[in-house]
Amino acid sequence: MINKLISAGFGGQGVLLLGQLVTYAGMIEDKHVSWMPSYGPEMRGGTANCNVIVSSDPVGSPVVTNADAVIALNGPSLDKFEKTVKPGGKLFINSSIVEKKAKRKDIDVYNIPASEMAIKFGNSKVTNMVMLGAYVTATAVVTKDSIMIGIKKFLGKSKAHLIALNEKAFDAGAKLVR
């Protein structure tokens, strides 16, 4: 098993964290993982992104060229990475702010109104969690339990009160693709 993900969006939308949580979950499940962030000039152009690989075998190249899934939280990310999804792969679009529709017909496209749902929960910062819920449920790369262990660890004691909100957002995303 190997699953390659690109998570992309504006800086501040939590795309890197989204990828990290998938990475941690993979690690918790004793899989081989790698997480490679964009740190170059493209970050300044609205497509902060990370390449995540979860695999049953050691990870070769950490660079994702044929993605099993792309999560696009904004328009520029859709423009840039739609072509990277391999045929039969999955594309998750934050349809709240991405006005364009996906052009590809050979992939599964999930339009998730993630920003709107997050705002409905009272915190736009959990947009990424809605997308994560959809992604994890549609792909079954890792389990929700592993993701939650990662979220708890990431938030730590001082932000433990946010665990419930994050889980709620995750479940909302999950429900949309079930």
């Binding site: 993982v33 790698s34 490679m36 962030p37 950490p62």
Partner: peptide, 10 residues
């Protein structure tokens, strides 16, 4: 290189 420096692995 920058990739080894920036990437996360166990």
């Amino acid at each position: 290189d920058g990739m080894i420096g920036q990437m996360m692995e166990p």
